[in-house]
Amino acid sequence: MSDPRLPATFENPGLPPHVHRAADTDPRAAKRAERQVASLFTLSILSTIGFVVSYFAVKSDTEAFIPFIGTTNLLNVLLGVFLALALLGIGFGAVHWAKTLMPDEEVVEERHPIRSDDETRAKAVGLLEAGAESAQLNRRPLLKATAGTALGLFALPLGVQLAGSLGNPTKALDELKSTIWDVKDGKPIRLVRDVERTPIKAADVSIGAVFHVLPETIKESHHVLEDKAKAAVLLMRLHPNDFAADDLGKKAKSWGYEGIVAYSKICTHVGCPVGLYEQQTHHLLCPCHQSTFDVTRDCEVIFGPAKRPLPQLKITVDAEGYLVAPQGFAEPVGPSYWERKK
């Protein structure tokens, strides 16, 4: 049934006939467009003046109430809105001008294949070959070899300088293992409150409480943030019966003091502080990636991307009843790394 005279596919019908805009045919419409564009530019001018005036006239702490936003800073709003109007006036004006008054008949530009023609290609190849030949690249292998090697190596000094001076990585493995909980002179280290830096008596810790704790040695630290980043500890008191009856629970309890247990606050996943303690479930939750640790079972991971339990800090009390750590962590705290077990 198909007509043999019909082509196999449709043919491009070419550009459709041009439709004139109102401003092309009606002088009044053109005038109107001109006025619109001019008013937009004028808006921009006025807004720029508004910006400058507000900059000097409005006090920086003046408050203003704006619906949907609430009380906000007047200067910020005025500067922003005036700047926006100054810019939008120019933008809308220019585009409206282009749309209404500049020619709107589409223009056709021919394309040409991107590739160069064969002659040009041959010429380029010829030039390259002639150049290589005249430089005697192939006739003098010694030059070729040494030049190649020199070029290959020239970035090395820069690379060595950079890599060698960025930071000393030789201390990495030792430092990742140690914290300022490590006892140096045989004297157990007191646990102190994170902000107030005051020591904590065992009797101060009620069941259900959580203390954010640092070692007392933080007071002498010269690298407070670096030391804190490894030494931050969470101290919780559970009812002794709340610990699991299995080995993990027993270990947790025995490293603690009358149900008070201390765990590293640095997540074993990527190192966020695991601070969210649910005192009813005894779960610790990390706010960054939701790793959940069960305090009653030695902070075993019960949910989330972390693999390892939070390291426990062994604690006891000193003669005055203050909580102390007789030794540092038994394993590196924080995120895993390749040589962690070494």
Partner: peptide, 18 residues
């Protein structure tokens, strides 16, 4: 009092001024 999941922050943990 440490209601529900919230731990207790009594005066021995964070004092009245805190």
């Amino acid at each position: 009092t440490g209601p529900q999941s919230m731990p207790v922050f009594d005066d021995k943990n964070i004092d009245a001024k805190g």
